[in-house]
């Protein structure tokens, strides 16, 4: 399998607070990685670092073998290749769903609305949003907003998707529809890293589960191993609390 993304000894702190304390992680092409860990363990921060929304203090992030964390590197081309979906949706409230989705391809790739139309329509249909294209975000349910946010990231045809607890703001009955979307993506071979509290889901889709604790990946491995026979005490404690 091809190595897609590799984190080497990544350190990140906010002021005096150290959030990442030497993170190593390898993600192969088409793999789904689940980050689990207590609240505040740095899952969101790690995803934001990979998307270059935060600069790392030390270490390296390699995308297809090239260092994307080099200081001074233009982050835009990298961000175009790595999509991120935020826990709080962050749709643009002044634009309709379809405008939200078309904005980046129009501005970045210089495509016209007409050129984008067929592809975007297909995406909306695929995610059960065909009749919601002209709605504004505040006219959509939480689950619909979250799916629009996923479509918005996908419209840039990223090579990797980072998904930050994308179901945690949703009612239980909406969680299902968003998780279905992830299953679809996985089947299509998208490389994904997701931070999640949905242990059941992590167990089902993850090729590898990483347990984040105190700024390091304390334990990682196939889902059956992490959930079935965790080696470290802290992992066991954490799982006992959340399961």
């Amino acid at each position: 399998m091809n190595e897609k993304l590799r984190l080497k000894n990544v350190h990140k702190s906010f002021g005096a607070q150290k959030v990442c304390h030497g993170i190593d992680l390898t993600v192969n092409e088409g793999e789904t990685i689940c980050l689990i860990g207590a609240s505040g363990s740095g899952k969101s921060t790690l995803l934001r670092c990979i998307n270059l929304l935060e600069d790392i203090d030390e270490g390296m992030i390699l995308l297809d073998g090239a260092d994307i964390s080099k200081p001074g590197l233009d982050p835009q081309p990298v961000r175009q290749r790595i999509g991120i979906v935020f826990q709080s949706f962050n749709l643009f409230p002044h634009m309709t769903a379809v405008e939200n989705v078309m904005l980046a391809p129009r501005r970045v790739h210089g495509l016209s609305r007409a050129e984008l139309r067929p592809r975007v329509e297909t995406l909306f249909e695929r995610f059960g949003l065909a009749d919601r294209m002209q709605s504004y975000p505040d006219q959509l349910s939480g689950g619909q907003q979250q799916r629009v946010a996923i479509v918005r990231a996908l419209a840039m045809e990223p090579e990797i998707m980072l998904l930050d607890e994308i179901t945690s703001a949703l009612d239980p009955e909406l969680v299902g529809e968003v998780l279905d979307v992830l299953r679809q993506l996985r089947q299509q071979g998208m490389t994904m890293i997701l931070a999640t509290h949905e242990m059941k889901f992590a167990r089902e889709v993850a090729d590898k589960v990483c347990f984040l604790d105190k700024g390091v990946i304390l334990e990682e491995g196939p889902a059956e191993q992490i959930f079935g026979a965790p080696e470290k005490n802290r992992t066991r404690d954490f799982l006992r609390r959340v399961l």
């Binding site: 835009q76 962050n90 643009f92 904005l103 980046a104 501005r107 970045v108 840039m156």
Partner: peptide, 21 residues
């Protein structure tokens, strides 16, 4: 700020983040 990061994460330039979002 989350609106700015959402726009930047899509690969938009600073100018487009400002103008469009």
């Amino acid at each position: 700020a989350s609106q700015r990061s959402a726009a930047a994460s899509l690969g938009l330039s600073d100018w487009h983040v400002m103008r469009d979002v």
